[in-house]
Write a protein that binds this DNA or RNA. Structure first.
Lengths: 220, 220
DNA sequence: AAACAAAATTAAGCAACCTTAAAACAAAAA
DNA sequence: TTTTTGTTTTAAGGTTGCTTAATTTTGTTT
């Protein structure tokens, strides 16, 4: 599987997920930054491989096998992102383009080492679900990073990411734990910090950096 | 710089280092697993780029610039090897082929994060020197991993690698520290462990795995 | 149903990197 | 010095993944 094939399958999968519209040649070409002709070529090729149900002039639909391959690439991408950010302390911005390259050159063995090192996490630093080794997608119904929720909405903490001993200590201090309800009162653009009210009435200020590690689902 | 270019420069550099013989087309072709014609093609191309002093029928010699590029690739390779082995606990065998791929897809920024995470190490898990950010090669005159020294030779400990709290504890117990003299009395092939005598007369058994982290230079 | 616009496919071609086979060359042997 | 031997280069061609331009198909409009 070459880089191009990887990217083709991955992006057909993501487009399928992201919108209900059919994945057409032109949409995919736009996304991949290549010509329509290149997409047609590749689609025919992958059709022959059995990874895609290719019929001229029809929308692009991955086969079961194609989906599996796409999920493997996505798994690698998201684990790398999490790893680069959480372990090596790389900027969330840089992390994406770096993962974009590494995902294609990472053996299954290596990615399992990384997953294990991270404690087999379910979500990447953007809150996107990391497909499992067998292709299972962790449920993420309405999961958002705390930094992305709007003011004055009620959210339930879904997942706290433990980056190091200090994060756990901070969660402890705040009495923050999975399952509790909170409301973001104000977001300070200046430093990204958030004023939050817990259901027991306590109001605290959480740094943007810490908030990046708090995942929530909408209340009810 | 493509993968092929990377590999070309890297291997010219390594061959130059590894033996006093000139780096010929055929030797490099053999090493890269490509035809002689492919080497000539590439050599002419890199000559034009100024990375190689290319003259038909002459040995291949890197320019200053070419050396710098080669050293960057080698730095990436060796840091990845160390990282995969030391941090992710991957097998020394797997580590090489994995690094062989990653080295070409790692930004300068990422590799500095990795280097920093590892404490800017000087040697990879095979005991090979890791070129610095600016291309400086750590002196390795006669440095060997303890697992590679012969029986009944006297060696001075050059570097102890601290993989985790347990390794330091073990070094402590043995009273092992940089600068001390030791002699390997026997190597047990069965489990790779080594019977070692220190200069103060104590004799201890060191596991092969621990010994991989002990670097020595020949006494005198 | 005919015409048209938009989208997809085919056709031809390019660049990178490789191949094999033929030709050119260098160095050593006769 | 000429010949031989082995290496290096040149020549011609293949594959992959792309390009642009021309052509075909689809679906919609009239």
């Amino acid at each position: 599987m070459s880089v191009s094939v990887d990217n083709f399958l991955k992006n057909v999968f993501l487009l399928t997920q992201e919108s209900p519209n059919p994945v057409t040649s032109s949409v995919l070409a736009e996304r991949l930054g290549v010509s329509g002709a290149a997409v047609t070529d590749m689609a025919r090729k992958l059709g022959k491989k059995g990874w895609l149900d290719y019929r001229p002039y029809q929308a692009l639909v991955l086969s079961k096998q194609g989906q599996k391959l796409a999920l493997k690439v996505i798994r690698k991408h998201r684990l790398w992102e999490l790893f680069l950010h959480q372990v090596l302390g790389m900027d969330l911005m840089s992390v994406h383009e770096e993962a974009e390259k590494l995902e294609h050159h990472t053996s299954d063995e290596l990615i399992e080492h990384i997953s294990h090192f991270l404690g087999n996490p379910d979500f990447d630093p953007h809150g996107d679900p990391i497909p499992g080794n067998g292709g299972e997608i962790p449920s993420e119904k309405g999961v958002k990073v705390l930094t992305d929720v709007g003011e004055n909405e009620e959210w339930v903490v879904k997942k706290l990411r433990y980056r190091n001993s200090e994060t756990s200590e901070m969660y402890d201090r705040f009495g923050l734990e999975s399952g509790m309800t909170l409301k973001v009162l104000k977001i300070f653009d200046f430093d990204g910090s958030l004023e939050v009210r817990f259901s027991d009435g306590r109001e605290v200020l959480i740094s943007g950096k810490l908030a990046e590690n708090i995942f929530c689902v909408k209340k009810n």
